[in-house]
């Protein structure tokens, strides 16, 4: 693959550039989820910690939620923007434009894996061993990268055509976060609300992730199916939409 080298460079750039001018550089990738989780833990542990069923621990529960949600929302925002922000290049040199959203999703995947290091530590501190199912988080990560890349590809076309798409997406992502059991246990909700939350694919991703990493949630086969099918569907739709609309969109860059 001729553009594999380019993708590797792009992923590296994505990972290092954001913290280039900071003192600890890429260390922020480790620190960011820890700090965010800590703040939310201080705020919410009184309310929600005792409501988790069985032997589940709140700290790793919350942090897993934050890691996954950051991966998704940051991945979608940045990859959707990546075509517009690389417009000057794309109108001068022939590069398959898809490499930009895809690299962003891959960089998010790497960040996700890096973030699991502090998560493992938090699991250990709260007295929870890693589960033997931990390797399955690879599947979760890849599925989430596909989901993100697919949505990013579709949105990147819309971002060029409609300026206000950015604002809409920001709001939608925030709503979506509240419809995902990131910081609350799903069991505190009424059955009606629970069934709505279950319709959100991210809920399934999160269930599988928490279950696989340290057996901190229960995942059904339905969750697996929902996760695998939405990720494949997303990347297929994204690729098709992008292919169809790109020739007309490139003229607008």
């Amino acid at each position: 693959m001729k553009y594999a080298q380019l993708i590797r460079l792009l992923v590296g750039r994505e990972l290092t550039l954001r913290y280039k001018r900071s003192a600890i550089g890429i260390g922020w990738t480790l620190l960011n989820p820890v700090l965010t989780s800590f703040v939310l833990w201080v705020v919410f542990s009184f309310v929600f910690a005792s409501r988790l069923p069985g032997t589940q621990q709140y700290a790793p529960y919350l942090m897993a939620g934050i890691l996954l949600n950051t991966f998704f929302s940051q991945g979608v925002t940045i990859s959707a923007e990546s075509i517009a922000s690389n417009g000057p290049v794309l109108t001068k040199v022939y590069v398959p434009p898809q490499v930009f959203p895809i690299s962003t999703a891959l960089a998010g995947l790497v960040n996700f894996f890096i973030g699991m290091i502090p998560l493992a530590i938090v699991c250990y501190i709260s007295g929870q061993p890693l589960a033997w199912t931990a390797p399955f988080v690879l599947v979760v990560g890849v599925c989430l990268a596909l989901l993100t890349a697919g949505i990013g590809l579709t949105l990147s076309i819309m971002y060029i055509r409609f300026d206000d798409m950015r604002n809409i997406v920001t709001v939608l992502l925030m709503i979506l976060m509240y419809f995902t059991p990131v910081f609350y246990p799903i069991s505190i909700l009424s059955p009606r609300l629970q069934s709505i939350i279950q319709m959100n694919p991210l809920t399934s991703y999160l269930d599988v992730f928490r279950w696989a990493f340290s057996n901190n949630a229960s995942a059904t086969s339905g969750d697996w199916i929902f996760m695998l099918s939405t990720s494949l569907l997303s990347i297929c739709i994204g690729t098709v939409v992008f292919k169809k609309f790109w020739p007309r969109t490139v003229a607008m860059l």
Binding site: K2, Y3, Q5, L6, L9, R13, L17, K20, R21, P88, V89, K92, V93, Y94, V95
Partner: peptide
Amino acid sequence: PMIELGAGFHPEMTGAENVLFYSALMG
């Protein structure tokens, strides 16, 4: 393509990194 030279350059990357990146863009 020598159209608006440096269109693929990034200000935060070093000169050497930019050379690599620009070359990769050109395939």
